[in-house]
Simulated assay, not measured.
Amino acid sequence: MTTSIAARLSAVRQRLAAAERAAGRPEGSVQLLAVSKTQPATAILAAYRHGQRDFGESYLQEALAKQDRLGHCDIGWHFIGPLQSNKTRAVAARFAWVHSLDRLKIAERLNDQRPPGLPPLNVCIQVNVSGEPTKSGVAPEQTASLAARVAELPRLRLRGLMAIPAPAADPETRRTPFRVLKQLFHELAGYGLDTLSMGMSEDWEEAVLEGATWVRLGTAIFGARPPRPPSTPQGHGAGSDALE
């Protein structure tokens, strides 16, 4: 496992550097988020030993178990799945980032439950750029109003926007929703945003061309995702299996 993860991670980094050059962007301007949901702690540790530091999780109980096991590692944990009200306390206490904020109620709970000894929780507003009814995310036209309210919460730091566009076979078609998200990002310039979390295993190179600052890759690093054990708690919302 270690060898294959190391090889995949190296290949991804080389492709990422090439994508940055193709976009005329500085090397290192795009950060790699390894989507480790359903992967065992041993796989995360293998990637960690080869320099990966940021990992994305969607299923809370699974993530907490891995955090406990890997507590000796300097890992930045990102929550990237749809977030329910009864999960906010643990996410507020145990994660550095939330990429999937899509309503004010969740933002307020995260703010109120963020422990005072920790820095503000980094958050991105998830935008449903393709208008898919099965996916989480705020409508593009509602993004500004939500951003204004989130920016007022002192225990949160609004960093930017996230999107999971509908799949498309044509590279140019794949770029269109990323342009929509980037335009929204520019319209919110007054909030000092610095993050565009967009691009997954099938479209991340197009996302880099359109300004992504985080790309979320799972299978490209870890290989095929193992099935979730039947005993793993469900209920994390529609669209949580389509985040990388």
Rank of each mutant, 00 (worst) to 15 (best):
64 L>N: 03
64 L>P: 06
65 A>D: 15
67 Q>M: 15
69 R>D: 12
71 G>E: 13
71 G>Y: 00
72 H>A: 15
73 C>W: 00
75 I>D: 05
79 F>L: 09
84 Q>S: 12
85 S>K: 14
86 N>E: 09
86 N>V: 05
87 K>H: 13
89 R>M: 10
89 R>F: 06
90 A>H: 12
90 A>R: 14
92 A>N: 06
92 A>H: 06
95 F>N: 01
95 F>E: 01
98 V>N: 08
98 V>T: 03
98 V>A: 07
101 L>K: 12
103 R>H: 11
104 L>Y: 10
106 I>E: 04
106 I>V: 15
106 I>T: 15
106 I>F: 02
109 R>S: 12
109 R>Y: 07
109 R>T: 07
110 L>H: 08
111 N>Y: 07
112 D>S: 14
112 D>I: 01
114 R>I: 05
114 R>V: 05
115 P>Y: 08
116 P>R: 14
116 P>W: 05
117 G>C: 05
118 L>D: 11
118 L>P: 00
119 P>H: 00
119 P>N: 01
121 L>G: 12
121 L>Q: 03
123 V>Q: 02
123 V>N: 04
126 Q>P: 06
126 Q>V: 03
127 V>N: 04
127 V>G: 00
128 N>F: 09
129 V>G: 02
132 E>A: 08
133 P>S: 11
135 K>R: 13
136 S>H: 14
137 G>I: 08
139 A>I: 00
140 P>K: 13
140 P>Q: 13
140 P>N: 08
141 E>N: 11
141 E>W: 13
142 Q>Y: 01
143 T>S: 12
143 T>Q: 11
144 A>H: 13
144 A>T: 14
